[in-house]
């Protein structure tokens, strides 16, 4: 009988452990299915990506629709090429859309803001592997200060 009680206690212990794992997984961590499930890839070339990293979010109007999956240098001019993995739920972006690298808050992480463009008969929808040409690079503080000083000097 004692052995049965022992087994019962150990069984409860294991259940408590698994419940803790479930609590951590569901309540504390983001398992939201943005990059799991069906996805497709878009590319964008920037002059400067600033502090963008792999796994940085891609947002439309503040809503996360995907993540940066790879950052490489491409072409003979070594321009940064960013590969974005977008959830297939959002697959109706026109090819007039633009992307810009933005910062969340004053000191926050950098992310990619995707602005859907206009739609008419000549505009096609972005497919897997397409590139977005209308891009705006990250703001680099040193460049801004440089421009500011330069414009001061002209006055």
């Amino acid at each position: 009988m004692e052995s049965r009680n022992t087994q019962l206690a150990v069984g409860l212990f294991v259940i408590i452990g698994i419940l803790a794992l479930l609590f951590l997984g569901l309540r504390a961590a983001n398992t939201s299915a943005v990059t799991s499930g069906e996805t497709y890839r878009l590319y964008a070339k920037f002059d400067n990506i600033g502090g963008l990293k792999e796994r940085s979010p891609v947002k439309v109007g503040g809503v996360v629709v995907g993540r940066v999956s790879r950052i490489t240098l491409s072409g003979e001019y070594y321009e940064p090429l960013v590969e974005m993995t977008i959830s297939a739920t959002y697959n109706k972006f026109p090819d007039t859309s633009s992307v810009s690298i933005l910062t969340s808050g004053l000191l926050g992480e950098q992310y990619i803001g995707l602005n859907p463009g206009f739609i008419d008969e000549t505009v096609e929808m972005l497919q897997d592997g397409d590139q977005i040409y209308d891009t705006k690079s990250a703001l680099v503080l040193e460049d801004l200060i440089g421009q500011f000083l330069f414009s001061q000097g002209n006055d």
């Binding site: 294991v14 452990g17 419940l19 803790a20």
Partner: peptide, 10 residues
């Protein structure tokens, strides 16, 4: 590991 998970959750 089970104890560590319980520790973190609690």
């Amino acid at each position: 590991p089970l104890l560590a998970l319980v520790f973190s959750a609690v």
